[in-house]
Nucleic acid binder design. Structure first.
Length: 458
DNA sequence: AGCACA
């Protein structure tokens, strides 16, 4: 009986509400005019104007339902209709019970991004992976992650909104590269908005949040506890990895290690030594995050095919190796940090290891980064003498790193040149970063972003 | 002249 076909949805009567819906308002009606109209009937707690496609609707919310009823009742039988600037406005109860605070901010650019990772469960995407992905666009100051009904979300803080915009433009709607994810994890599509935040309040380094500008921030007790619950003793994270090698049938030189570990970022220093336990090596990265990635990717994998030279990685207690001279026991690739800005530590090594320029090429539409070619043909005299790497002996890498070609979205989205520049600048002097934490040459961060699928050749 | 914002 009430609503029959042909009639529009709006019924003649709305159930009463403290909120009154106004329509046919004059152009650019103000909140003050709404208040003038409504205040004879009661206390107005909120108004909202310029609503709707034509921006000629509005809401008035009274403190009390009876006040709204008074206004509607009055104009239902008043001689003069409600008017603003001489224009008749039509009133009815709103179908909402309150005016909800609206953020008309319309995605104002911010240095902080709100990232929603679709299609994942908690723990599918680590904070390190997010850091890796977003670091391609500039120094990431902080990351905070949280779980909501909407799913897994993260706030990613950059230096400024320009960098954040670059990241948003490049990554919104795209997916995290498969090889950065565990196999069981489905496609992780990123939905990115600007956050209203400008500075995240990260109190601890934990599995949920990181402050990359403050290396001295304490590690959250919760993070330690969780590690302990696994029953696995967990040494404190470090930028230096301790590698012990099992079943070392073939010589493992510093050069081989350098190539293997360079796939994940700039290797600053390497030292090798014999212990009664066997062969061990220390590999120093610029930061813990890079070490993390390398550790996760390489742990338990063999340098050579056939189960030879199996890597076991733990965090070293060192943070900065003391390599006095470059020889077959120790190597410093940092070039003594003299202001040459050289990004080519590999030049210090004896063999032509992939250069940063080759790395940059990997961001163009080459399915397999140039670096993998470089690494696949390592000229390592010592190793070659005992084991012909070029014959395909080196291979067993994590499946995630081997079998995946770069995702299409990454091919199609080479980072614009200006980004490289920006990134470089940002990396040179990220505010508040202790010198030893300073991210290394921008190109290295890019390399970091997408480790080559085939670091070892065949 | 007919219901926003998240």
């Amino acid at each position: 009986m009430s609503s029959i076909s042909g009639q529009p949805q709006f019924r003649y009567t709305q159930p009463p509400s403290k909120v009154i819906h106004l329509r046919n308002l004059p152009w650019e009606c103000t909140d003050e005019e709404l208040i003038e109209l409504g205040k004879p009937f009661g206390t107005i707690v909120k108004t909202k104007c310029n609503v709707g496609a034509n921006r000629n609707q509005a809401f008035i919310e009274f403190a009390d339902l009876n006040q709204a009823i008074a206004m509607i009742s009055y104009y239902a039988s008043a001689a003069e209709p409600a008017q603003i600037r001489g224009k008749t406005v039509y009133l009815q109860y709103s179908n909402r019970q309150e005016i909800v605070n609206n953020k008309v901010t319309a995605d104002a650019a911010s240095n902080v991004l709100l990232v929603t990772v679709e299609g994942v469960e908690a723990g599918d995407v680590s904070i390190d992976v997010l850091h890796l992905v977003f670091s391609a666009f500039g120094f990431v100051h902080k990351i905070a992650t949280f779980e909501k009904t909407a799913g897994f979300q993260a706030l990613v803080q950059f230096s400024d909104s320009e960098i954040a915009s670059s990241a948003k433009n490049a990554l919104d709607g795209r997916s995290i590269p498969r090889y950065l994810l565990q196999e069981h994890v489905g496609p992780c599509t990123l939905k990115i908005n600007f956050s209203a935040h400008t500075d995240l309040n990260v109190k601890f380094q934990s599995h949920r949040s990181r402050d990359y500008t403050n290396p001295y921030l304490p590690v959250a007790p919760s993070a330690i506890d969780i590690a302990g619950q696994d029953g696995t003793k967990q040494e404190p994270e470090s930028n230096v990895l301790l590698a012990s090698i099992e079943n070392m049938q073939y010589t493992v030189t510093i050069d081989v290690l350098h190539e293997v570990f360079s796939a994940f970022g700039f290797v600053q220093k390497i030292a090798i030594f014999e212990k009664n336990a066997g062969f061990q090596a220390l590999i120093q990265y610029p930061d813990i995050q890079t070490a993390n990635i390398a550790k996760q990717a390489l742990e338990g994998h063999c340098i050579y095919e056939g189960g030879f030279c199996k890597l076991h990685l733990t965090y070293s207690r060192h943070t900065d190796l003391n390599v006095k001279i470059n020889n077959d026991r120790g190597r410093d690739y940092t070039g003594g940090n003299i202001g040459t800005m050289s990004n080519q530590p590999s030049l210090l090594g004896p063999q032509p290891v992939p250069t940063p320029s080759a790395t940059i090429h990997s961001y163009n539409s080459i399915p397999y980064p140039a670096i993998s070619n470089g690494v696949s043909l390592p000229q390592v005299p010592q190793a070659a003498a005992s084991w012909d790497i070029r014959s395909g002996a080196m291979a067993p890498l994590p499946v995630q790193l081997r079998n995946q070609s770069l995702p299409p979205h990454l091919h199609s989205q080479p980072f614009p040149p200006h980004l490289h520049n920006q990134m470089h600048i940002r990396h040179v002097a990220p505010p508040g970063v202790a010198p030893h934490m300073m991210p290394l040459p921008g190109q290295r961060s890019q390399q970091l972003l997408f480790p080559p699928p085939q670091p070892y050749g065949r």
